[in-house]
Nucleic acid binder design. Structure first.
Lengths: 144, 144
DNA sequence: ATAAATTAGGACAATTTTGTCCGATTTAAT
DNA sequence: ATTAAATCGGACAAAATTGTCCTAATTTAT
């Protein structure tokens, strides 16, 4: 569904949001540990997220990553996905045709648009805040 | 969603089904042309489909590929996907966790299982025959 | 038997994705 | 000022996916 980069990006964002809600900034090293991802690769992903204003990066000693409380409740899962994977998830024919739309559909176009619409709806209605719920009480996990 | 190999595989299967319904066997070359795919790569995919009894391959002069009428109405899109991409589409956590289930879910597990269930349902209820409908009258296309 | 047309399959090549390494830069603390 | 702790960013490396090429094997027609 998503690229590895995107998976790491989502998990990282959720962890940063969680800690930001607690008022603490987190380092790359800590993030990679808590979401079980390769450190250097995660760094690249976080750069990408930083450039897209999903996370805020603070350089220097005592630096790290954080997300403002306001953004935690505003940022949608769809934005994180878009920042890393672009619109591959939404657009793009299920059978790989370059042109595929209602007028000139592939044989599964209509079946796919339905599924995709629901996926889109889900991604656009899920906030970072939503995804932090349950982590504290270990009802959900970021590494397994 | 699917790998390139899988996309070619689905399109190839649909084309073979279409021609088999007309009673004609088709060659690799013709398939690749009609679905606009790289010939040699498509050959590999068809080998895979043949091994999984999705298509029947006949060697030698006047050989080619075909699918029995019975199979055309029996084979589900899900089987083609499974033959090439395995169960990546169904299983596998949306955030890439190795273990992720109702008991130990990732933060988006519940949201994803819903989407995935509908996708699964769609793939399992769409037959090869269903996907050939519309091709003759150019209501749908296999290359664009 | 021979030739022609076809799929099978192994080896290789190119591209994309994933991952690593290291020096540069920035910031805070001493 | 110096040092330590952190991100940034470029270059490189490994792995996976996608794609190509060539020979072998099979079948039909002559």
């Amino acid at each position: 569904m998503f690229s590895k980069a995107c998976e790491y990006g989502i998990r990282a964002s959720i962890y940063i949001a969680l800690k930001s809600l607690e008022g603490t900034r987190v380092s790359l090293k800590e993030i990679a540990e808590k979401i079980d991802s390769p450190v250097a690769f995660t760094a690249k992903v976080l750069q990408q997220l930083s450039k897209n204003d999903i996370v805020e990066s603070i350089k220097g000693s005592s630096g790290g990553f954080e997300i403002s409380k306001n953004n935690i409740s505003q940022i949608k899962l769809s934005q994180i996905v878009y920042a890393i994977d672009g619109n591959n998830v939404y657009e793009g024919c299920g059978l790989g045709l370059k042109r595929c739309n209602a007028k000139e559909p592939c044989p599964v176009h209509n079946r796919f648009v339905q599924i995709r619409a629901e996926l889109k709806n889900m991604l656009e209605s899920t906030t970072l805040y939503d995804m932090t719920m349950g982590l504290e009480q270990e009802l959900t996990y970021l590494r397994r």
